[in-house]
Amino acid sequence: MSIDKNTVEKVARLARIRLEDDKAEQLAGDLNKILGMIAELNEVDTAGVEPMTGVIDMKLPEREDKITDGNNVDAVLLNAPEQTAGFFVVPKVVE
């Protein structure tokens, strides 16, 4: 499987990264080299093998359902590029 410029542009849109006009072509080349390497995985017989998510055989720990943290508006907003009245500000999303 090899990917072309259009696929790179589509994936970049999914990843929310704007590409310069000439970048997609070059990236397609890079990504195909990486995918070419990855394709070697097809040589491996994985019939009946369970996909592995984590290396530790451990149940996700549970704790009592109570508030342990919060009410830190100032700390949360400390690094906001733009804020007002205790909220993050973004460009208008609803007309």
């Binding site: 849109r13 990843a15 990264i17 949360v76 690094n79 973004v90 460009p91 999303v93």
Partner: peptide, 20 residues
Amino acid sequence: VRYGLRVPGDNLIDTYEKTR
């Protein structure tokens, strides 16, 4: 939105894409 660099765009998605 919450921290780090922001490059302003025409709308929210444009802001995401330009920032990243």
